[in-house]
């Protein structure tokens, strides 16, 4: 373990493909799965909470004049329909959003469907309890991960540096198969570094902070936080937007995990051991 940490601190260098390297320490692996679970629970229970007031306003108090998103049920020709209104543009979303699965085998006026929320049936009280419990799990797992990754040197390997910026576009071209070789890089390629840096140091902290700003007790203790975010309803909007961004990251992450050697990637996050492939380097 020490030797791999030392290697991680060295400059990037090419390594022989096929070599098994120890990539993730036990604390990093445990917290990765713990916060993956936490984010799943927070996502599903967050949609449950959203359903209690299925609209988002870019304002402090609720203000229909500044409504950015609304998901509701309506009636057309005597038939119930689901309607999503984004920036004033209405979309028909019957059966999926607005008028959808109620979590009990029927359909009803409900923003997000029961199969996607936690609990399934409309239940704000328990949705909040899931959300507030796993918010703590996320915060603790995130904190432990950062400390563990900093101590092992993993953090150094994937934090995006100014020197990585010119390599981002060539890497994108390689992903699009418009370039035969990726730019030379260390353990993580420049786009991985950009993604991990943004998610770990922007999305996750902002998700936590915007969530805290929704609490009237926190708002009373740290009033400038809510003001900075544009007000309480605005904080709710940011919280939702960050969730959507993180969902986008999750989709990309999952696709790439599957497409770039599913078993090898999974093993590295379960046992820690990763088999180097062509173009894989070692180091920052």
């Amino acid at each position: 373990m020490t030797s791999s940490a030392e290697r991680a601190r060295a400059q990037p260098r090419a390594a022989a493909p096929g070599t098994l390297v120890y990539r993730h320490g036990v604390a990093e692996r445990t917290t990765h799965w713990l916060w993956a679970l936490a984010l799943l629970v927070l996502f599903m229970s967050g949609l449950q909470i959203f359903n209690a007031a299925p609209y988002l306003d870019a304002s402090d108090k609720s203000d229909p004049q500044r409504r950015v998103l609304a998901i509701r049920a309506s009636t057309i020709d005597g038939q119930p329909v689901g309607v999503v209104t984004v920036f004033g543009h209405a979309l028909r979303t019957t059966h999926l959003l607005g008028y959808t699965d109620d979590g009990m085998g029927f359909e009803s006026a409900r923003a997000f469907p029961g199969w996607l929320t936690l609990p399934g049936p409309q239940d704000l009280a328990d949705g909040r309890r899931w959300h507030l419990l796993f918010a703590w799990v996320l915060v603790i797992a995130y904190g432990v991960y950062l400390i563990a990754a900093a101590r092992r040197g993993t953090l150094r390997e994937f934090v995006l540096r100014p020197s990585d910026l010119p390599k981002l576009w060539p890497m994108q071209l390689y992903y699009l198969r418009l370039r035969s070789e990726p730019p030379p890089h260390g353990t993580y390629n420049p786009m991985q570094k950009a993604a991990y840096t943004i998610v770990l140091f922007w999305f996750l902290p902002l998700l936590i902070v915007t969530g805290l700003a929704l609490s009237p007790g926190v708002d009373a203790s740290v009033p400038w936080l809510t003001v900075l975010l544009g007000g309480r309803q605005f904080a709710r909007l940011w919280h939702f937007v960050l969730m959507v961004l993180l969902l986008g990251y999750f989709g990309t992450h999952l696709t790439l995990v599957v497409c770039t050697g599913c078993w090898n990637n999974m093993r590295s996050m379960i046992t820690g051991w990763y088999r180097l492939k062509d173009h894989d380097g070692v180091g920052p």
Partner: peptide, 30 residues
Amino acid sequence: DALTNGPFHSVLSGTEGLNRVVIDTRGMAR
């Protein structure tokens, strides 16, 4: 349903005390 209503239910309500200790109600509303 089973996780929400089963033995896990008491765990779910367990953060209330923690939240209260961390936030408390000393702050002044805007």
